[in-house]
Design a protein around this nucleic acid. Structure first.
Lengths: 319, 319
DNA sequence: CCGGGCCTCCGAAACGTTTCGATACTCTTA
DNA sequence: TAAGAGTATCGAAACGTTTCGGAGGCCCGG
């Protein structure tokens, strides 16, 4: 592997001169620099990230840790982050699972954006001692070096619930996603709040895990056990809502004639499903851009103001 | 930042002893090792990836370079790769755009899986001088250190086309994705071959770019310019097929009564669209696992046999 | 002709690890 | 009791960069 030493030898100059030349230091005159660049090019030299990272104490890299690659909500978020970062000179890497924690602990990046509930608060707190800044998207965590940028789930779900109540629904049920996730909790709280304000009882609560399958399962079990159904299912996300619709259709019911369903996220599928799903739109792309811009400011030690990403109720045909 | 030196000082042993202890070298007796581990834990020490990477000449990392985070086909692929890699002790990182080339050139990983057409063959050839192994998913590229694992587009599309011909369609049109991509080319060749064998003329060819919007556009333009339409649109992927369906529906046509449409990939949406799309299923998840297993073998210098990932025609209702 | 300033360039230390090749000990065993 | 074999530990070099602090050489003004 060609190193800077090889370049120096070939160019008959010192290592330091090569380094300066390659990094465009003004003290190297134009013609020397271009000579050195030509030689580096020729022998196929590229600096070793490892060596550079070690010496400079940063990597010019931002890590995005996500829970999995599968979910339909991440794409726009990642695209948004990437879009913004591409204009800076930071490299973006994304990881999932166990990899993420390793990358953080061993400081493979200068900053991180995290939305993976499997990384515990505790672990994050520990990591934040050595690694900053971190932006968390999926939890509330008060800690120096950790910043929160969440979706305004509470307000959006409250608004959705109010709309439903206004429509005259009486037997209203909530379908939970993974119970102890921040998203689920805050959405549920918004729902709860709206119900309480309207002096309404929650008809029932069901437990899913944010997947489509869990939504379908709930319906199947409900039907099989002959329990009374609500008039409308307020799901904590679109995937479960769609799963519920699948389950209901499977049993021969009509939506919204027999039962209503609402979602949250406005994933692409929601417009294709029949009837189209009434849901809360989150503009993940611009949220991503916002997050990236924030971490860039943080990296420059500039002051930032953190605000929640708003959601917007999109009325379609599912209730 | 705590370094190994701090641990050594706190434990009153030498740096080398700490290093051996932390890496579980058998020459360090159990009780010394656990004492050192405890101290490292206590002062919050984590090794610096940069320093380790520099000294050992590898990173235990595999890079996956994708074209963008947006497309619906990557998720399962990435999940498959991750699934397999998670069982090894390699860290997986994914990147896109300009970042990918930097990461490769500066050797931030030990191996790479690439499916991003914007990285040119030339660039890849150059990179492969310093960086191996590389598995490419989106092109054919004969070069030491570069391995190809593609989808068997040719065969699958030929089969799809044969099915269509067998159904009795006469005016058959092909809808191209981005023209010079390997996927588009090989799918087109499969189509062409089937047509030739059946002694049929290709009714027309349209040019899209693999996006839904491009599919819809094609229909709109066709309709506006009053050109004759084919009886069936053979699209190079599902997204365009769905875009075409959208365009046709928009103009009030019925599918498959008025026009037929076929896709390729079997993305999730294809089952939700009405009518459900007839397409070619690619099991991206197991393809991903296969790819990951292959790169792992390559890394261990074991012999590998590269085979194409097969596709399977899934008959649904769009023709 | 001398001193100072600028322009080019260079040597060497440092970043935080790993690992080779010792060096002291402590036991065995003859 | 001395030699040999382990055992536990250590010092120092090396990985490939960046960057500080010069050092020579040249030109300029006085």
């Amino acid at each position: 592997m060609a190193t800077i030493k090889d370049v120096a030898k070939a160019a008959k100059v010192s290592i330091s001169t090569v380094s300066y030349a390659l990094n465009g230091d003004p003290r190297i005159p134009e013609k020397t620099a271009s000579m050195i660049n030509a030689i580096a090019q020729e022998i196929g030299y590229f600096p070793s990230a490892a060596a550079r990272n070690l010496k400079k104490r940063y990597t010019q890299t931002i890590l995005v840790a996500i829970a999995d690659f599968g979910g339909p909500v991440y794409h726009n978020l990642l695209d948004g982050i990437h879009h913004e970062l591409a204009m800076s000179n930071y490299t973006m890497i994304v990881s999932t699972g166990k990899s993420s924690e390793n990358l953080l602990k061993e400081r493979n990046a200068d900053g991180a954006i995290i939305t993976d509930i499997r990384i515990s608060d505790d672990s994050l707190r520990k990591i934040s001692k050595n690694f900053r800044p971190i932006i968390v998207l999926d939890r509330e965590l008060e800690e120096p070096g950790i910043y929160q940028m969440t979706i305004d789930n509470y307000r959006a779900m409250r608004e959705m619930t109010q709309t439903i109540i206004y429509e005259g629904y009486q037997k209203i049920a909530f379908v939970h996603g993974v119970k102890d996730s921040h998203d689920n909790r805050s959405r549920y709280q918004g729902f709860q709040n709206a119900m309480r304000h309207a002096n309404m009882e929650i008809f029932e609560e069901y437990e899913g895990n944010f997947t489509k399958e869990s939504g379908t399962d709930i319906i199947r079990k409900l039907l099989k056990s002959k329990q009374p159904l609500p008039e409308i299912f307020v799901a904590a996300n679109d995937e479960m809502a769609i799963g519920i619709m699948d389950g209901l259709h499977e049993a021969g019911f009509q939506i919204p004639a027999d039962y209503g369903v609402s979602g949250f996220d406005d994933i692409e599928l929601s417009q294709y499903v029949k009837p189209q799903l009434t849901t809360v739109r989150i503009d993940h792309f611009s949220w991503g851009k916002d997050i990236a811009a924030t971490i860039l400011s943080l990296l420059k030690k500039q002051p930032v103001k953190l605000q929640m990403q708003p959601g917007k109720v999109i009325i379609r045909d599912s209730f």
